[in-house]
Amino acid sequence: MEKFNILTINPGSTSTKISYFYEDGREIKEELHHESEELQKMNQEDEIEYRLSLINNSLNKNLVDMNKTHAVVGRGGLLKPLKSGTYSVNEEMLIDLKSGVYGKHASNYGGILAQKISLLYNIPAYIVDPVVVDEMSDIAKISGIPEIPRKSIFHALNQKAVAKVHCEKINKKYNESSLIVAHMGGGISVGLHYNGEVIDVNNALDGDGPFSPERSGGVPIGDFFKGFYNEEYSKDFLLKRIKGQGGIVGYLGTNNVKKIVEDIKAGNIEAKKIIDAMCYQIAKEIGGLSTILSGNIDNIILTGGMAYSDYIISKIKEKISFICEVIVIPGENEMLSLYHGGCRVLSKEESVKSY
């Protein structure tokens, strides 16, 4: 793949990560931290300008010549369902990102900040594989309740990137492969990649699939309704039980998986039970997806931050290794994934998509 000078931007709730990739292979990266109390005092436009000023200060400090930059690539936010790919930032996208019509999240600022910088330096602005990438088959979207179809909201950026890197490594085309990719981070998504599309995946944001460090996963909905349908509980409270205060946090009071695994090694029986249950659910999700292709899976890939844990990997592997070879690619590699998305369209390997 041809290389270019590209700035990548990944906004989070209390930080903005930036990486500048040079065509000669060098990389400058920095995580710009923000005090949440300060951000809460700002309106949207003020926060965007604040983050932009920090980005520009960092680029100046690191002597980055933006006049030699080929593109800027931002993290994709909550948008309408999209096919996988690299999208140019246009006015319609900016309207949806700013309004939060499909959801409000710090990642929405990725495309907005990219567009601001693109105007300053007359370079193209892109986003790559936002979490709303939707390639699910029609049958996979049927939930059991007609008013509530299953949705594709997952770690598309990293899942797609590690799948393509793996296929390149074994000299096989991604669009001719059958893979199951499990991204294991604060949320967990397990996707079935078939001939270049993720034809089934759990909604890793809103209560579907395995529970994770911060999310409930799929819970018995009848018991949830009966247990919490009460004036005492607000909508915000209920949503936080699903996302933010569910999963491992709900059981153990912390989302620090590294520390919990250390506690397991020190003999903490309760911590072991909860982590083992999470691994059990991840393995069950992988096994379930393998049936869709009658077990004809080329490889299973385990990725995300929790893939650094030998304990977690071993627990999952012992249940799924009978299906096919299991590949471990730890970490999220988000900035590199954004960079590669930009390179693919600049080198004409892929066509840029329009929102």
Rank of each mutant, 00 (worst) to 15 (best):
A271N: 07
A271W: 02
A271H: 08
A271V: 09
K272D: 01
K273F: 04
K273I: 07
K273P: 00
K273V: 04
I274C: 02
I275K: 02
I275F: 06
D276H: 03
D276M: 04
A277L: 08
A277P: 03
A277E: 05
M278V: 13
C279G: 06
C279L: 06
C279M: 05
C279Q: 02
Y280V: 09
Q281I: 08
I282D: 00
I282E: 00
A283P: 12
A283K: 02
A283V: 14
K284C: 05
K284R: 09
K284D: 04
E285C: 15
E285S: 15
I286C: 10
G287F: 11
G287D: 03
G287Y: 10
G288L: 07
G288T: 11
L289R: 13
L289P: 00
L289V: 11
L289F: 10
L289W: 02
S290M: 13
S290A: 15
S290C: 14
S290K: 04
S290R: 06
T291Y: 10
T291I: 12
I292F: 06
I292K: 07
I292R: 06
I292A: 06
I292D: 03
L293P: 11
L293T: 12
L293W: 09
L293E: 12
S294E: 11
S294L: 07
S294G: 05
S294Q: 08
S294W: 04
G295E: 04
G295R: 06
D298I: 05
D298L: 04
D298S: 09
N299E: 11
N299V: 11
I300L: 14
I300H: 11
I301P: 02
L302N: 03
L302G: 06
L302A: 08
L302C: 08
L302Q: 03
L302K: 08
T303F: 15
T303S: 15
T303L: 15
T303Q: 13
T303G: 15
T303R: 15
G304N: 02
G304A: 14
G304V: 15
G305D: 00
G305P: 00
M306G: 01
M306V: 09
M306N: 00
A307G: 12
Y308D: 05
Y308I: 13
Y308R: 04
S309M: 14
S309V: 14
D310N: 13
D310K: 14
Y311V: 12
Y311M: 10
Y311N: 01
I312C: 06
I312D: 01
S314K: 12
S314G: 06
S314H: 10
S314A: 13
K315S: 13
K315C: 13
I316D: 01
I316S: 03
K317D: 09
K317N: 12
E318L: 07
E318R: 05
E318H: 05
E318T: 11
E318P: 10
K319L: 12
K319P: 04
K319T: 04
K319S: 09
K319R: 14
K319V: 08
I320Y: 05
I320D: 01
I320T: 11
S321F: 04
S321D: 03
S321G: 03
S321H: 07
F322R: 03
F322E: 01
F322M: 03
